[in-house]
Simulated scan of single mutants.
Amino acid sequence: MQLDDLYRRVIMDHYKNPRNRGTFGDEAVTVNLNNPTCGDRISLQLLIEDDKIIDAKYTGEGCSISMSSASMMTEAVKGRTYEEALDIATRFSALMKGEDVQFDEYEEIEALSGVNKFPARIKCATLAWNALRKGIGEDSSTN
């Protein structure tokens, strides 16, 4: 099996079987973002305690890239400190720029590496990550 085929399967698996899709109650930090160029929307909710992301969920509508990326992101950041989550987000940004990046803590993110070949789709892939940055108080415009 080709690596591209494997990556496509991982992306479609997260799209068809999303992880952490849903909502929390009012105790969650909620960030709503959209990509006006294509209509993707996400509502990210984070349960935070002592600068640590205890849990993460999302709802939204969008293409397979944006929804798969949201599913992977929530899996990758659960149980992480802000610093750890930002490190993962920074590496994801580098991946979207075509840099060779490894994600030992959650390798499925690497399935999105091919998105950088399609500049119009990068905003789809980074939507959830921008919501994460905003949710933990970082400027999402750095992405």
Rank of each mutant, 00 (worst) to 15 (best):
E27D: 15
E27I: 02
A28F: 04
V29W: 09
V29P: 06
T30I: 06
T30L: 01
T30Q: 10
V31P: 09
V31I: 15
V31Q: 04
V31N: 04
N32D: 08
L33K: 15
L33S: 09
L33Y: 07
N34E: 15
N34T: 13
N34R: 15
N35Q: 08
N35C: 12
N35P: 04
N35S: 14
P36Q: 07
P36V: 09
P36A: 06
T37G: 10
G39I: 01
G39P: 02
G39F: 04
G39R: 01
D40T: 06
D40V: 08
D40Q: 13
R41L: 02
R41I: 06
S43M: 11
L44K: 15
L44M: 15
Q45N: 00
L46R: 01
L46K: 06
L46M: 10
L47E: 08
I48S: 01
E49A: 15
D51P: 10
K52M: 06
I53E: 05
I53D: 04
I54E: 12
D55N: 06
A56Y: 03
A56C: 04
K57Q: 14
Y58D: 10
Y58I: 10
T59M: 14
G60F: 05
G60L: 06
E61T: 15
E61D: 15
G62L: 13
G62Y: 12
G62K: 13
C63D: 05
S64R: 11
S64L: 10
I65E: 00
